[in-house]
Amino acid sequence: MATRTSRRRLLRGLAAGLPALAAGGALAQVGVLKAHEKPKSNPLPGDPGEWRGQFFQQALAERANGSAVETPVKPSELPGTAAVGQDAPSAAPRAAAALSEKADLVRMQEELRRALQKPVDQRKWTMVIDLRKCIGCSACTVACKAENHLPPGVVYRPVIEEETGTYPNVTRRFLPRPCMQCDDPPCVSVCPVGATSKRPDGIVVVDYNACIGCRYCITACPYGARYFDFGENYTDGTPRKEPYEEAPSPEYGREWKRDRGKSPVGNVRKCQFCLHRLNAGMLPACVTTCVGAATYFGDKNDPDSFVNELITSGRAIRLKEEMGTDPKVYYLV
C-alpha cells in the first residue's frame, strides 16, 4: 500500500512536469545533446541527481550512434526526488520508503560509476535479490527481453513462482533466476571450443562468433540459465517480421542482427548482467525496472558497496551452494 501511494505521488509529479518539459523550458535548461557531442560538465558533480542525468545522456548518445538524443528529465526536477541524497522530509513513512528506493538506485548508479573507474579485473559484479520485496510481476523478465531483443524461447531472467499452503492460508513466493555468473562456472570448462569464458570482472560471456552450438554448456549449467537460439520469431507464420524483431540486439556492445544461419541464431545465449549497459555506465535492465526495488547490483570488491552491505546482512543465501559453483547472485530471505 505504501509503495502504491508513493508511486501515485511520483506519477502525479511526472504528469505535472511533462507539459513544462514539452513547452521547452526544461529542454532549454538541460539542453539537447547530439551523439557526437561530449558532455561538457564535470562527470561527477556533487548532486547525484544531476550527474545521473548527464551520465544517461552520454550513455544514450553512445548507443544512438549518430542520431540526436534528447536528454531525459533531470531526476532532481521530478517531484519526490528532491530529497535524494538528503535527509528525508518529515512526511509519511510510505513516502520515505519510496524515497529510499530511489536513493538505492542512485547509490547503486554512483557505485557502478566508481567501479568502472577501476581496472576491470578489480571489479566483481554481484547481484542481490531481496525475495521479501519481489512481488512476482515479471517486469524484470520483460525488461530483459526488451533490452536484449530476445527471441521466443530465450528468457534470461524467468521468475519462478512457488505457492504453498491451502486456501485461505496461501503464500506465494517468487524467485527471479538470472545467470548466477558463477565464479567457478561449470559451463565454461565443458565448452569444446572455449567460446564461453569468465571475464576478469566475473561475468560469464559467450563469444557468439566462436560458439558452434553444441549445447553442452546448457546441460552443464546447474541453474538452467542457458538457452539455445533456434532462429524463431514471434511473428512466425505472419506475412512479415515486426520492426522490433528486425532491430539488432546490443549484447556485448555489438549489434547482433538475427538472421537465419547467422549468430546469435544457432548459438547458446545467456544473461550477462547487461554488460553493454554496464560498460555504458548503466545498471542492468532488470535492476532499474524492478517494481519492488528488489534487485540490487554492484561491485562486491568495493567494501562500501550496497551489495556488500546486503550480503553481510545475515539474510543472504545462494542457490545450490553444494555444487561449489560460487554464484555471484545472492538472495535475501
Binding site: T141, P152, G153, V154, V155, P158, V159, I160, E161, E162, L175, R177, Y223, G224, Y227, F228, F230, E232, L319
Partner: peptide, 12 residues
C-alpha cells in the same frame, strides 16, 4: 530448479 518448468511457458 523446482518450478523452473512453470516459470515461463514456451514451446522451447
Amino acid at each position: 530448479l523446482p518450478g523452473l518448468d512453470r516459470a515461463y511457458i514456451d514451446s522451447r
